[in-house]
Amino acid sequence: MIEFLQQIINGVGLGAIYALIALGYTMVYGVLRFINFAHSDVFMVGAFSGYLFSRFFQIESIFGGVMVMILSMGLCALLGMTIERLAYRPLRNSSKLNVLITAIGVSLFLEYSFQIKLTKPLLFPALFPVKSFLLPGGIILSSTQILVIGMTLFLIVLLQYIVLYTKIGTAMRAVSFNPTAASLVGINNDVVISFTFGLGSALAAAGGILYALNYPSIEPLMGVLPGLKAFVAAVVGGIGNIPGAALGGLLLGVIETFVNGSPYSTYTDAIAFILLIFILIFRPAGLLGKVTVEKV
């Protein structure tokens, strides 16, 4: 029982990070109907910018850690918006396949340009004070886990607030439903799409830093596997659905942790894709996705 609870805690900690990345995939899919494969590399850049900014602040302090996160999220938001502006916007009216291939191109570009300078993994510093708490029954809860879960929860609530209760968030939902109708009420679709990329990329940066706090060795290809898994999480939850992405991420994190603690631990990385296959067979719209019928 104790071990079960411990694994749940570990799984939620991992799943929270998948959830943060999955949100970016799902939001961009919501407004543009394509999978931004460069998103996993924005996650990687998030970790590296955290490394860079950590030099200017005191490490192992809450103030310093929060500042590093905010700055990295801001930088990656700019990166995401730049990618959209330069690589995707010129292809707005071409086929989805062209945009998809471009996204893979951007992904490879980011990975290999980072590899030019970085031949060895870097050691990510402990941004926040690290402590472990021994709970009754012998469950160990680390301050990093609390931070990851708390920060993710905060960011998801903030995102839900933006999407549901602000003007730009309502505009995002309007553009996502019908871009033509959105332009007829005066919404500049380009601005909304750019904002969506910024928001998703900022979340990916937060995910990158939180991930690096757990796995402190950072390198240019670190985004590939978590990125793919977060993509699976977004599909499992129902692509285009924000609560779905959060749920999918958490679910995947927990399942993966349990597999890792079982005799079948060699399948840890495979379980995400097995899950993907089952979801696509039995519930192709995802757990929270709805099969929509358009009313004419």
Binding site: R173, A174, S176, F177, N178, A181, A182, K295
Partner: peptide, 9 residues
Amino acid sequence: EGRMVFSNL
């Protein structure tokens, strides 16, 4: 034509 209300809002 077709009204195009935002059905999700």
